Amino acid sequence: MKTIAIIPARENSKRLPNKNLLLLGQIPLLVHSILFAQRNPSIIDEIYVTTDSAAIKKVALQYGVQVIDRPDAISGDFEPTVTAIQHVLDTVSFTPDHVIVLQPTNPLRPDYLLQDAFKAYANNSCDSLFTVSRNHQKLGKISNQSFIPFNYAIGQRSQDLEPLYFENGLLYITQTKLIREGKIFSENSLPYEVNHIFATVDIDTQDDLDYAAYLINKSSRLRST
């Protein structure tokens, strides 16, 4: 069986321009996902970056991964990620059994994550796996200037909330046939719980990038003590 990793990295970003090339811990944001994939050679056979950017392509090639030039037609702001993944599969000369999708906007991942998640994926009769984290907030909506609780009753303690989870974007593992159907995960997907602090990082703004830099510095200090 063959497993490939695909890292989708568009050039355009309205809220944080050129974010995939911004430095985080002295290397471009994109590179964190490349290095994570390269640290898992027992699982990942080949690594591809799909991009519409010459600058991103240059960086990816410098780090020894393959690059698929993404056409403008599937590089727009409203284009779903799955079309870029499908284009990679249409471009390579073979059909992998499994695809691992690593978003560069989720640059920090526990070292053990892929090994543990892939084992769970292989041991379950699912067509894909995606990572989730538990929500610990009291959520609600505002209607007619009134707050309506969603996941709790007024006065209820936070520790008594019914467990709810959010898709954190750290990792997706999927069978190739599901990608062909236009999906990265489906109703037959395994939600894999990750409650590590890194699961709170999703880079969309400068504040997000600053927070990720803080976590990297904190982790480095803990390792050196």
Score class of each variant (00 low, 15 high):
Ile56Trp: 02
Ser33Lys: 01
Tyr48Met: 08
Val92Lys: 11
Gln86Ser: 10
Gln159Met: 13
Ile68Phe: 02
Gln103Leu: 06
Ile44Pro: 01
Pro80Arg: 08
Val31Thr: 01
Phe118Asp: 10
Thr3Ala: 12
Arg157Ser: 15
Phe36Met: 02
Ala120Thr: 07
Ser53Lys: 05
Leu35Met: 07
Ser13Met: 03
Asn123Val: 01
Tyr112Ala: 12
Ile173Thr: 02
Leu222Asn: 08
Ala212Cys: 00
Val194Leu: 01
Ser219Asn: 13
Thr205Arg: 10
Pro28Cys: 01
Ala213Thr: 12
Ile68Met: 04
Thr174Val: 13
Asn124Phe: 13
Val101Lys: 02
Thr91Val: 07
Ala54Glu: 14
Thr176Ala: 12
Pro17Arg: 09
Ala117Gln: 04
Ala122Ile: 08
Pro149Cys: 06
Arg10His: 10
Arg223Ser: 14
Tyr172Asn: 09
Ser53Cys: 11
Asn124Val: 12
Ser125Gly: 09
Ile56Cys: 05
Leu89Pro: 04
Pro80Lys: 08
Ile34Ser: 00
Leu29Thr: 00
Glu181Met: 14
Ala84Lys: 09
Phe166Thr: 10
Thr91Ser: 15
Gly76Val: 08
Ser220Asp: 13
Asp207Ile: 06
Ile179Cys: 12
Val101Cys: 02
Asn20Asp: 06
Val65Leu: 03
Lys58Arg: 13
Glu11Met: 10
Ala5Glu: 06
Pro8Asp: 06
Val92Arg: 09
Tyr172Asp: 04
Glu11Trp: 07
Thr225Gly: 15
Gln38Asn: 04
Glu46Trp: 05
Tyr211Ser: 05
Phe130Met: 09
His98Gly: 02
Ala199Tyr: 04
Tyr172Met: 08
Lys19Val: 00
Leu102Thr: 02
Lys183Ser: 12
Leu61Ile: 12
Thr83Leu: 15
Asp116Asn: 14
Val132Gln: 05
Thr225Tyr: 12
Ile6Ala: 00
Asn195Gln: 08
Thr131Ala: 12
Ile85Gln: 04
Leu161Val: 07
Ser224His: 13
Pro17Ser: 09
Asn40Arg: 04
Thr205Ile: 04
Ala73Arg: 15
Asp210Gln: 15
Gly155Ile: 08
Leu22Gly: 00
Asp210Phe: 07
Leu89Gln: 03
Leu29Arg: 00
Ile7Ser: 06
Leu215Asp: 02
Thr105Ala: 00
Thr51Ala: 03
Glu187Ala: 15
Thr81Ser: 09
Val194Cys: 09
Asp69Glu: 15
Asp52His: 05
Thr131Asn: 02
Leu102Ala: 01
Ile6Cys: 07
Tyr172Lys: 11
Thr95Val: 14
Thr174Ala: 09
Ile184Thr: 13
Asp45Leu: 02
Ala213Lys: 04
Pro71Trp: 08
Ile197Thr: 10
Gln62Ile: 04
Thr176Arg: 13
Pro191Met: 04
Arg70Phe: 02
Thr83Asn: 13
Leu170Glu: 01
Gly169Asn: 11
Arg134Ala: 01
Phe118Met: 11
Cys126Trp: 10
Lys183His: 14
Ala117His: 05
Asp208Met: 03
Asn195Leu: 10
Ile27Gly: 00
Phe78Cys: 08
Gln156Ile: 03
Arg39Ala: 12
Leu129Pro: 07
His136Leu: 13
Ser75Thr: 06
Ser75Phe: 10
Glu187Met: 13
Phe147Glu: 04
Tyr121Arg: 11
Leu139Phe: 14
Asp207Phe: 08
Pro96Ser: 03
Lys57Ser: 15
